[in-house]
């Protein structure tokens, strides 16, 4: 399908070009802060993309995705602390741990419906938070400093800011591509069908429980990947990474950007972090503005930024 040149396509192209060219800008101006900020935006956008797969396409309101950030981050942190520095070992273990956690939580919460689903991942994420706070060997409440970033035997050097930024960006674009392929596959259509009408999908022979569970596990694993990157980016991981307000931030990004749209989470992550920067310049108490703003978005702009770009699509 050939799309016409529209506002949305232009915005997406501009945003992607800006993201790709950012290191050039920072090396010309020497603006180190912008690179750090954008690495963070790209990583959180990856987390939002993963949540969007479960929330936007699967209709699973997971208020516990920050737990996966924490699990990915802690897997890297703990392995590095115990002397395993190789990313080839760290990353698969971290991803496996996230997938396993997603499998367990998903299997439990998908047995229930509706509002239970919101609370169960939330409760388990809080459990993960308390466990991390109780890990005295790995810093407990204070968190764990990474001595070294994951090493990839010279293939790529995550300690180099520009290389790390491009690694994150590549993984973000890769996961957007993955989500695009998934949602247009038979699997993805079945999951979206289950979101619209679960009973009907089961009636025509789809075991929706397994489909949704698989979707949740993929989503959790991708979010674990974001956690790995986040820990490498800050060289630090602490229980705060999976505090429940972080899960809330991720949901805000997805909804602000536009649920169930491919680039929505990216818009949302950029918008939220920029909003934070901008509002915190107006007042120290910037959340007093952000809160009501969220309320207004919920009440009046359901499609989020993507919906605005597409033209009025009221939900």
């Amino acid at each position: 399908m050939i799309r016409k040149l529209n506002l949305r396509a232009v915005v997406i192209a501009t945003l992607l070009a800006a993201l790709l060219l950012l290191p050039l800008y920072t090396s010309l101006t020497g603006d180190r802060f912008a690179l750090t900020l954008f690495t963070r935006i790209v990583i959180l956008a990856l987390a939002a993309v993963s949540l969007n797969l479960a929330l936007g396409y699967g209709g699973m309101v997971s208020f516990g995705h920050a737990a996966f950030l924490g699990i990915g981050g802690y897997a890297v942190g703990i392995l590095s602390y115990e002397g395993v520095g190789s990313g080839f070992v760290q990353w698969p273990i971290a991803l496996g741990a996230s997938a396993l956690f997603a499998l367990v939580i998903g299997a439990l919460s998908l047995r229930t419906r509706g509002v239970y689903f919101i609370m169960i991942p939330l409760a388990f994420a809080q459990m993960a938070y308390y466990i991390a706070s109780g890990l005295a060997r790995y810093g407990g409440d204070d968190g764990l400093t990474l001595q070294n970033r994951s090493s990839f035997a010279g293939l790529i050097n995550p300690s180099n800011k520009v290389q790390f930024y491009y690694l994150c960006l590549a993984l973000l674009l890769g996961s957007i591509y993955l989500v695009w392929r998934l949602t247009n596959s038979r699997f993805g259509l079945a999951v979206q069908g289950a979101r619209s009408n679960d009973t009907r999908m089961r009636a025509i022979g789809f075991p929706t429980y397994r489909y949704k569970l698989a979707c949740f596990v993929i989503s959790g694993t991708l979010c674990g990947l974001a956690g790995i990157l986040l820990a490498n980016n800050t060289d630090f991981v602490s229980p705060a990474i999976m505090f429940w307000t972080r899960s809330g931030d991720l949901i805000v990004m997805v909804v602000l950007g536009g649920m169930g749209s491919l680039f929505g989470p990216l818009f949302g992550a950029v918008a939220l972090l920029f909003l934070e920067e901008a509002l915190s310049r107006i007042t120290e108490y910037w959340q007093i503005l952000l809160g009501p703003l969220l309320l207004l978005v919920v009440l009046f702009a359901r499609g989020g930024i993507d919906g605005l770009l597409k033209g009025a699509r009221r939900g």
Partner: peptide, 17 residues
């Protein structure tokens, strides 16, 4: 329900601040 979650999350930020 997602709307409730988001809107009341906004309220939490507002109240805390």
């Amino acid at each position: 329900h997602l709307d409730h979650v988001l809107a009341t999350f906004g309220l939490i930020l507002f109240f805390d601040e």
